[in-house]
Each structure stands twice: as structure tokens, then as C-alpha cells.
Amino acid sequence: MKEKGVILFIAVFAIIASCKKDDSTNVEVIPPRPLAEVEAENDATIIEYLKTHYYNYEEFESPPADFDYKIVLDTITSLTDDKIPLIDQVSTMTIPVSSETFNLDEDVTVNHTLYYLAAREGIGESPTVGDSTFVAYEGQLLSGNIFDSNSTYTWQYLPFFLRGYAAGVSNFRVGGEIISNPDGTIEITGSGIGLMFIPSGLAYYNNPPLGSGIFNYDILVFQVNTGLFIEATDYDNDGIPSIMEDLNNNGNLSDDNTDASTELSSGFGFVPNHLDRDDDQDRILTRDEIVIDSEGNISFPDSDGDGIPDYLDADS
């Protein structure tokens, strides 16, 4: 009996091992979908949503005494077919997205449409995509499932956030005076309140955060309350506002890295210009290779006359 038991154990073990081996060799790796295909699908889905939904614009137009100034989305039905659909109220902006952004094998650039709505215009100016902004926000999927929110204002350096989110926030005006409440909370008078619909190519595409409730190619919807911003934010304190370090003017500060080849060979890792205090890696700080006058105006010397300013020219 004991010998038969051992033989049986070996047979079972062999079967299990065989199954594990088969499982490992049969794992199917699904490649990312083509960027243009996903963009077209996302855009059609957003448009259909905008045609069939509305928001509580009437409350924003004539706010009740206890109105919380929160955007509420709802479906247009036979009982609400007199409501103005979102498609007739949103604005759009076109943002080109390179397949390189998501390390796709294809080599294409596809225009993506960002849809946004200002439910309440702020009384201040609008930040740029390179500014630090004081924002309260809520993020959800088209299904209505909320994946992230912060009801209190928090500072956000926009280049650290999703490209579509940063672009959306830059379309809204901020508020004015800060008011401290007895309960310790604050309010900002005349803050901007907006809504944005972000296709996946301007969000996470096929690589959403684990456990976030966001899935591959999901469209994201953000409601934001824009309070304040730091004008001409200079995040790395090199004397040049971050937005001026978007050298290719595409609204994506993370793909501007003048000294990328030097950083690669030196093993320092890639640091885009808006985070780099020495943009050309010549061991002279950027701040020491520019000139800032008494009024804050910046000029960019080109000591060797080669058309490249010193702060971007390692051999100047």
C-alpha cells in the first residue's frame, strides 16, 4: 500500500507539473491596440454620451440659496427631452498624441479631441499646463463610478498629471479671495467650476494604475474647482518658468529634454528641462546662463553665435 501511494503521488505531481508547464507556455500576451483605432472609438463614445446627457445648468444660471455648485450629470429621457444636451454646450481642443508616448510599435501621431465645459467662469486668469494650481476635483468613468476625488483644495503641479487633465484645467479661470471658515475649511470667491471628458490617449491608454478601478482604454471624466494658481511657475527654480521649457510647444513638458543623450551616457537618468537645473549638462546652472533684469524679463545669451542659447548649448 505504501509503495502504491508513493507511485500515485509521483503520478499526480507529474500531472500537476505538466499542467503548470502547459499553462505557462499558453499564456497569451495581448498587444496594445492601435492608437488611431482607440481614438476613433473613444471619440464616438464621448460624442454619444454628450448627445444623451445634460448637466444641472439651470441651477448654475439661477443658483438656489443652498446650492453647492457641483455639476450633476443625468441622462436625457422622455421626461427631460427639453434639456440642452452637453454636446451643445461643450468646447473642444485638439491635441496631437504620438504613439511613442505609450511605447507602441507603430510610428504615428493621432489627433485627440478633449471636450470641456465651464459651468462657472472664474473671476481670475487661467493657468498654463506648466503651472501649479490650487484645485479640488472628482474623477469618474462614463459609468459614473468615481475613482478619485478630493473635495478640499490641493496644490497640483500640472506637468505631473495626465496630459488631458492638465490641458483641461488650463481652459478654466481661477478665483480670487481666500475665505477661512470657522470649521477650518476654506473657500475661494469666484472660483472656476468645470468639466472635462478625456479620451484614453490623453490619459492612461493601456496602462492604468493597478487597483484604481480604471481599465485599459477607459475614458475619464473630471469635475474641477479651480481656486488659484502660481503665475509663471518655475518648478526647478532655474530662472525659467516651466511653460517656457516646453520647447516644442506641444503642451507636454515631459518630452523636452535637451541633454537626454548626455544623461543617458552618464547614467543620471532622464530629467526633462522643467525639472533640470542644468538643462545642457555642462555643469553650469541654467540660472547662471540666462539674464533676468530688474523687471523679471529673461534674455538668453548665445555667446558663440551658433543660434543655440547658452543654457541649451553644452559647448558654448
Rank of each mutant, 00 (worst) to 15 (best):
I123M: 13
G130C: 01
S143T: 11
V97P: 02
L86F: 06
S143K: 06
S132H: 00
L73V: 08
E125I: 10
D105V: 07
P96R: 04
L114P: 03
D82R: 14
T128Y: 02
E138L: 09
E138T: 12
A119M: 06
L141F: 01
Q89P: 05
K83F: 07
I76S: 04
G124H: 00
N145Y: 09
Y116D: 04
P96I: 04
G122R: 02
Q140C: 09
L86M: 13
G124W: 00
S126C: 12
T109L: 00
L104D: 07
D105E: 14
T113R: 08
T113G: 05
S143G: 12
A118G: 07
G144E: 07
P96Q: 06
Q89C: 07
N145R: 13
E106L: 07
T94R: 14
V90H: 09
L73T: 03
G144P: 07
L142R: 01
E100N: 13
E121F: 09
V97T: 10
L73H: 07
D82L: 12
T75P: 11
D131M: 03
E106V: 05
S78D: 15
E121W: 10
D131G: 05
G122M: 04
Y116F: 09
N145F: 05
L73N: 07
G122L: 03
G139I: 03
T133I: 10
I84D: 13
I87A: 06
T75I: 15
S91C: 09
T77P: 08
A118I: 00
S99D: 08
Q140N: 12
G122E: 06
K83M: 11
D107C: 02
L73S: 05
N111P: 14
A118P: 01
T80A: 11
D131S: 05
D82I: 11
G122Q: 05
D88I: 11
E100T: 15
V135C: 09
M93W: 09
N103E: 14
T77S: 13
G130H: 01
I95P: 03
F102M: 01
G139R: 01
P96S: 04
Q89R: 11
N111D: 15
E100W: 12
R120N: 12
L79I: 13
L73W: 07
Y115R: 09
I87R: 02
I95E: 06
D107M: 10
I123T: 14
L73A: 08
L141R: 08
F102R: 03
P85Y: 11
M93P: 08
Y115L: 06
A119P: 04
S126F: 00
S98T: 15
G122C: 08
V135T: 12
S126W: 00
A118N: 15
V135K: 06
V97G: 04
A136F: 06
K83I: 02
G130P: 04
F134A: 04
N145P: 00
I76C: 01
L114E: 02
E106K: 10
I95N: 06
L117C: 04
T94A: 13
K83G: 07
R120P: 04
T101K: 14
V129P: 01
L117Y: 05
D81R: 14
G139L: 03
M93R: 14
T77Y: 09
S143V: 00
P96A: 05
Y137I: 00
G122I: 01
G144K: 11
V90M: 10
F134W: 11
S126A: 13
S126H: 08
S98E: 14
T80S: 15
L142Q: 02
T109R: 03
L117E: 03
K83L: 03
L104W: 02
P96Y: 08
N145M: 10
H112L: 00
